[in-house]
């Protein structure tokens, strides 16, 4: 006897069958996306479909802010104007000194026959919203592939580096912040030139210098700037300030915690720096013959994988 209901109502396959189908489809997608990154094309189109909704969601708040700022009082505007004028004066003095210093540095570099540094092009952008992923520290900015943004470009605000462009959509791009645990940035202590790599500290909002030798000369309040030797970040941009150092005799290495200089988790306007000219040839390209084989493979992978680029290329030097 057949106990299944008569086919009066066509309901298609049973829910459990459908669940298996969609679950395996999702799992396949997850693996393809996480391991092989084949799904990027599909992601671009889906993101484009979601873009009007995102725009519609952020627009009312933006409009409310604009209207609110329109009605700001005159006294506040005057105050702010004075403040900005003072700041502009300060900056212009710095800029003049910078030009002189730049000329001097170029001259010196020519004398020692080092490569000349090229100017870094900057594209202003506005942070649309913080990434809606509680597992990762990311923001989205309103400049994308159509504006000439490239994946891997460093992103800074007016006081320092905040992160790196990791994914570019046609109209917006995703910036992974320095505090993301997967993000690494090669740094240098401004005081004495000590080189290291700073890793993101995740939800704590701090950066970490992990494998410092226990007698490394570093102290609280030391300023860290980009060292520029990875070819991704231009040299000399402020990154963080050391806030605490853990030197434990039980461990071989010291660990320093640093607070980002820039407003990594706040701030509205950022600059996307273009790094296409500053990138030096990767060691794998020039000294392929000299490198050990395993090293070469690792470097080739590092070159492909933009966010981990800094970590691998710098860590091996």
């Amino acid at each position: 006897m057949d106990h299944s209901p008569p086919p009066f109502f066509k309901r298609g396959p049973a829910p459990l069958v459908r669940l298996f189908f969609f679950a395996s489809l999702s799992l396949a997608l997850l693996v393809v996306d996480a391991r092989f990154r084949y799904a990027e094309g599909m992601r671009v189109w889906l993101a484009l479909a979601a873009y009007p909704l995102q725009l519609a969601a952020t627009l009312p708040i933006e409009v409310a802010e604009r209207v609110g700022s329109y009605f700001s009082t005159q006294s506040r505007l005057i105050e702010e104007n004075a403040e900005l004028r003072a700041k502009a004066l300060e900056y212009s003095r710095d800029a003049q000194r910078f030009q002189a210093a730049q000329a001097e540095a170029d001259e010196l570099r020519r004398n020692v026959e080092a490569n000349e540094r090229l100017d870094v092009r900057a594209l202003p952008a506005e942070v649309l919203y913080a990434g809606r992923d509680p597992y990762a520290q990311k923001v989205f900015v309103d400049r994308g592939a159509t504006h000439g943004v490239r994946p891997g470009s460093p992103v800074a605000d007016e006081v320092g580096i905040i992160g790196q462009v990791t994914r570019v959509h046609p109209l917006l791009s995703e910036v992974t912040l320095l505090t993301n645990p997967d993000q690494a940035i090669p740094v240098q202590v401004l005081r004495n030139g000590l080189r290291s790599v700073a890793f993101g500290g995740g939800a704590s909002g701090l950066l970490e210098l992990r494998y410092l030798s226990s007698n490394a000369e570093i102290q609280n309040g030391d300023k860290l700037v980009t060292s520029g030797i990875d070819g991704t970040y231009p040299a000399g941009l402020p990154v963080a300030v050391v806030v605490s150092i853990e030197r434990d005799t039980e461990h071989t290495f010291a660990r320093a915690l640093c607070k980002p200089t820039a407003g990594v988790d706040r701030g509205r306007y950022v600059l996307i720096l273009s790094n296409e000219h500053t990138r030096a040839p990767l060691p794998g390209e020039t000294q392929a013959a000299k490198e050990r084989r395993s090293d070469k493979v690792r470097r080739a992978r590092a070159a492909k994988d933009a966010p981990r680029d800094a970590k691998d290329a710098d860590g091996s030097r």
Partner: peptide
Amino acid sequence: LLTDAGNGVLLGQHAL
């Protein structure tokens, strides 16, 4: 899938 792409997370996590 739309949520995944819009949020910029791993494609397939919300779909699953």
